[in-house]
Design a protein around this nucleic acid. Structure first.
Lengths: 342, 342
DNA sequence: CTGTTAGCGCGTTCAC
DNA sequence: GTGAACGCGCTAACAG
């Protein structure tokens, strides 16, 4: 046995019991089921406890009850602006139920994510996986050992909250079509991203529906730099407008375009996704709004409900999206349209 | 007693012991002090353990050893872009030592922060408070019960990592002076922010040193909106340039200025702090770089070192900063300078 | 209403 | 090298 007493041996229930002239069980009850004990006894015990500086030991309680009031939240990249609002909302929601939340950064890496999840299982009552890069098999595996809620990942039988960007993407394409664009490009995101698969599909269907031709540009990890480096590929297509997997890539694209003297939106139109940059870019970015905070709140509520009721639901919540028109879209330039006549 | 067996009763050390024909102690040793036991016995036990799906129970181990491998990280606002890189770095550093990290969002609120810290103490071995909004007294109080490391908060006797923006701010003022500005404004941040106090002081000293006059604009919570709403106050001063507490406020100021037709940097110069927006604004923001990620990494390393060596250091690490010149600073406009002659 | 008695699962002194 | 026994601090049956 060791010394839990780093500073000074913390008083235990037994100490309180002795000092108050009652049994340990009474002390325990005074802190939990106050109904099953004399009201006056409760206040006396609580007073004594405070006097001698007793504070219930979380670990011991957890060992006994099997509940420790912790959940974990795993995201691909904390520093990607899509996630912080989600993290914030989820954390504050958990806080309302007195839950503590572990944060894990998978670094867009399935192996790292798997390692984190394994570390968390056993320390938490529930798990919240955001935009998981894991395979369906691994997710199901983990779900079998620990209550699990997914955000932006659609695995049958596992409760999930999905941000349905299909609607917003379709609006974006319609918007582009209305402006006169006929050929567009889509710069895709990570291979294992559900959101990217959904957006890519939505782009292709929307293109058909609204009579456009679309080129898909290879998937990349979402970042400013990766957007910037995609510009040459984009210009190799006959596109007069581009839809990016997310705002970070869109912002990078705008910089890359500016670098070679192509001005947005006069010469080229750009549409982002997620609306995390606000009107911070110049020109202000036209983008698909996805309110990630709401997803975080909904998913955490779902998870906590499951834990409280000890029942495994099979929810499938879908949050809708819409296009936010700002200043990066305009009719195609005559020049570039001429390059690739319809 | 309850059912830790949500799904199926997890196998325990006793199960392994029985199946392997050894005692519980041997199983325990096989998982911890492999030296004190026969090498062949170890592999056999480990094999049996894997076969029956045994996995050591974190909670029980923690109760016995007093160590649970958790630390907590508390920030004022997860969604403020200054923090995510710091969080990310700290989390990944902890990960290297197999530590799990709780994340807390104080919402810029001392009471909320205190509540979070109280909740975390007892669940963690150590605490990392970033830009704490707590009083020195409360911080010392908590430090007395749990190993604590501070970022951007200078309390004697408590290990801390400080991002010294004084250097960068002085460079900014010199830069402004060189451009010909004589009157500037500083839009301050939260009252309880150490960084703000330091920057404010640096601005005032720098102003004296370089022969400028400075007006301080009341403190506000760092946000785009609060920057935007500060513009009228700024223009009520004779300033021809403004230094903002952080990039968020600076960005808001730029928008507010644009709203009323004042162009940056031709009519007015703007300098931010933290360099979290990259070149995302237009014009690209001149700002003081503060690499928050490095602070997160350093602080977490410090904390983990303390925990590993069980010694309380009194470190005071200082990280330096520098001005990043981009496009929001230029000589003062003749017009506005005329309004308030030197 | 309250005290007594068992554990929760694991680490760790002791003997052997 | 290995096993038996105790303790970590608390909760939960079982009496009374």
């Amino acid at each position: 046995m060791t010394e839990n007493n780093r500073r000074q041996r913390m008083p235990t229930m037994a100490d309180v019991a002795r000092a108050a002239g009652v049994s340990k069980s009474s002390v325990s009850r005074a802190f939990t089921q106050q109904g099953l004990i004399g009201a006056d006894t409760v206040v006396r015990i609580l007073q004594v406890a405070k006097d001698i500086g007793f504070v219930p030991n979380h670990t011991a309680r957890a060992l006994s009850t099997g509940r420790h009031g912790n959940v974990a939240l795993v995201v691909p990249d904390v520093a990607n602006p899509f996630f912080p609002p989600l993290i914030r909302a989820a954390q504050m929601q958990a806080d309302l139920s007195d839950f503590c939340v572990f944060l894990g950064n998978s670094d867009e890496n399935p192996r790292q994510e798997d390692k984190l999840v394994n570390r968390f299982v056993g320390k938490v009552e529930g798990l919240l996986l955001v935009a998981s890069r894991l395979t369906d098999e691994r997710i199901s595996f983990h779900a079998g050992k620990c209550p699990l809620v997914l955000i932006n990942r659609d695995v049958a039988g596992i409760p999930r909250v999905l941000i349905d960007s299909a609607v917003g993407v379709d609006q974006a394409i319609l918007h582009l079509a209305d402006l006169g664009h006929r050929r567009i490009a889509y710069v895709s995101g990570p291979q294992s991203s559900w959101a990217d698969q959904q957006r890519r599909a939505a782009v292709q269907q929307g293109a058909i529906r609204h009579g456009l031709v679309v080129n898909i540009i290879g998937g990349r990890v979402p970042s400013y730099e990766n957007g910037r480096s995609a510009v040459s590929e984009i210009l190799a297509t006959p596109a007069t407008a581009v839809i990016a997997f997310d705002d970070l890539i869109a912002q990078g694209i705008m910089t890359g375009l500016a670098d070679i003297g192509i001005s947005v939106p006069a010469d080229f139109s750009v549409v982002g996704c997620d609306d995390v940059l606000g009107a911070a870019t110049y020109p202000a970015l036209t983008t698909v709004s996805t309110r990630s905070g709401e997803a975080g709140l909904a998913a955490m509520s779902l998870l906590l409900d499951m834990l409280a009721s000890r029942t495994a639901r099979d929810a499938r919540l879908s949050l809708d999206t819409h296009l936010v028109r700002r200043a990066t879209t305009a009719p195609p330039s005559a020049q570039r349209s001429a390059i690739s006549p319809i």
